[in-house]
Amino acid sequence: MASIRGVSAKSFGLKDNKSALPYLLLAPGLVYLAVFFIYPIISLGQMSTKTSSGEIGQYKQSFRFANYVDAFLESKEQFSRSFIYATIATVLALAIAYPLAYAIAFKSGRWKNVLLVLIVAPFFTSFLLRTIAWKQILGEEGPVIKVLRGLHIISPQTTLTATSFAVVTGLAYNFLPFMTLPLYASLERIDPRTLEASGDLYANGFTTFRKVTLPLSMPGVVAGTLLTFIPAAGDYINAAILGSPSNKMLGNVIDARFFKIVDYPTAAALSFTLMAAILILVTVYIRKAGTEELV
């Protein structure tokens, strides 16, 4: 046996191929990440502790970690707003996407594929255009405000654009597919017979949802909320287009510091703070949701 194994391994060179192949496959991705993620992150980190050398746009490294404290104190309002808006938008998107994904997974029959294409359809237009369109929808001449005013739900003086309402609904709208698709994927995987079994074991429709459907769709809920919350917390387009100056999020501050004020160290420090905050929140969330306990 040993000799047979020795011969086959040697003559086909199986062992060598096996150990090299994974690295070969990983290489393009690793190189890409090194050039376009790791290097920028390092240079961003270096930038965040620099101070001005006197001239505009010129900085020297002085390891001033107080940059972080200054940056945070200056924009803590936008910082907390980012997280509040992102949280509300995520909850809103979940509330809209869950029934939607549920209907597509279990009730759509032969329309399933058409509906899935419709979910993805917004991606065919640019993010920016969609947000501008959203401004039109909520604007003075748009249908939403006319209906709401006609029904006397809002007073004739109230506007919808340039409000936190517009920013949050815009975020929820823009990231809805990221919520819907993972939810659909995990709902669709549920064996309908487990739902029948639940009914057979004395659970009514609501209990079946609570005890079987919901727990089995938790991986989708976790994935969907992460895919919505993370980009929403860092987003600045919605606040820039749909909000007023009092609805600015941290993304807008970073944008302004980088491109308008040309204050790179503050912008870099804020970027890092945002990244760290999201990372911590996500870690806590995943721990709480206990995804490793799920199938």
Binding site: D191, R193, T194, E196, A197, S198, G199, D200, L201, Y202, A203, N204, K211, V212, P215, L216, L294, V295
Partner: peptide, 30 residues
């Protein structure tokens, strides 16, 4: 009668056990 009100239980083809519950909780479900 709704299924959950019937004095009937079913052993399903391919069993349809609840994948997220332990064996104990599967049996305790009803």
């Amino acid at each position: 009668m709704k299924p959950y009100r019937r004095p009937v239980n079913t052993v399903f083809q391919n069993y349809a056990l609840f994948p997220h519950l332990s064996i104990f909780e599967n049996i305790a479900f009803g």
